[in-house]
Computed example of a mutant assay.
Amino acid sequence: MKLAGTIAGILLILLGALWILQGANIVGGSVMSGQSQWLYIGIVVAVIGAALVWFARRRRV
């Protein structure tokens, strides 16, 4: 479960980062480029991914 949670979290962070860059119009070539709602959706997805990685990697006592 630890490895699966870490991998899923990293994928969510990367996907969120892509959506942030598209929403900020840094990455073009998509209908999502320049649409600010994708910036906010990307932030939420990246934060969820970071939380998932944190929960998967924390030590259990």
Rank of each mutant, 00 (worst) to 15 (best):
G16E: 04
A51Q: 15
V61L: 14
I20E: 03
I20Y: 00
G29M: 03
R59E: 11
W19K: 05
I43G: 01
A50R: 12
I48K: 04
W19R: 05
A50S: 15
G16I: 06
A8K: 05
A51R: 15
A56Y: 12
N25V: 03
R58M: 07
I48D: 00
R57L: 11
A56F: 13
A50W: 14
G23S: 08
I10T: 13
L15E: 04
I48L: 13
Y40F: 14
Y40T: 10
G28E: 12
V31D: 07
W38C: 00
L14Y: 09
Q35N: 10
M1Q: 08
V61F: 14
S30R: 08
L18A: 09
I41Y: 06
S30N: 06
I10R: 05
S36Q: 06
G23R: 01
V61E: 09
A56P: 05
G42T: 07
L52S: 04
R59C: 06
A46D: 03
G16C: 07
V27Q: 03
L18V: 14
L18H: 14
G9Q: 08
T6G: 08
S36V: 13
A50N: 01
L15C: 00
R58L: 09
V27K: 03
I13G: 03
V27P: 02
G16H: 09
G9P: 14
G16W: 11
G23C: 02
R58W: 12
Q22S: 01
G5E: 09
A17Q: 13
N25H: 09
I10W: 08
L12M: 15
A24R: 12
I26P: 03
I43E: 00
V45N: 00
G5K: 11
L39H: 09
G34D: 00
G34Y: 01
L52H: 02
V47R: 02
I41R: 07
Q35Y: 01
G9D: 05
Q22K: 10
I7C: 10
A51N: 12
L12F: 10
A8V: 13
S36K: 10
V44L: 13
R58I: 09
M1T: 08
L21K: 10
K2L: 13
F55R: 11
N25G: 08
A46C: 02
V61P: 15
L18K: 14
V53H: 01
A24F: 13
V27A: 09
V53I: 15
M32N: 08
R60K: 15
F55I: 12
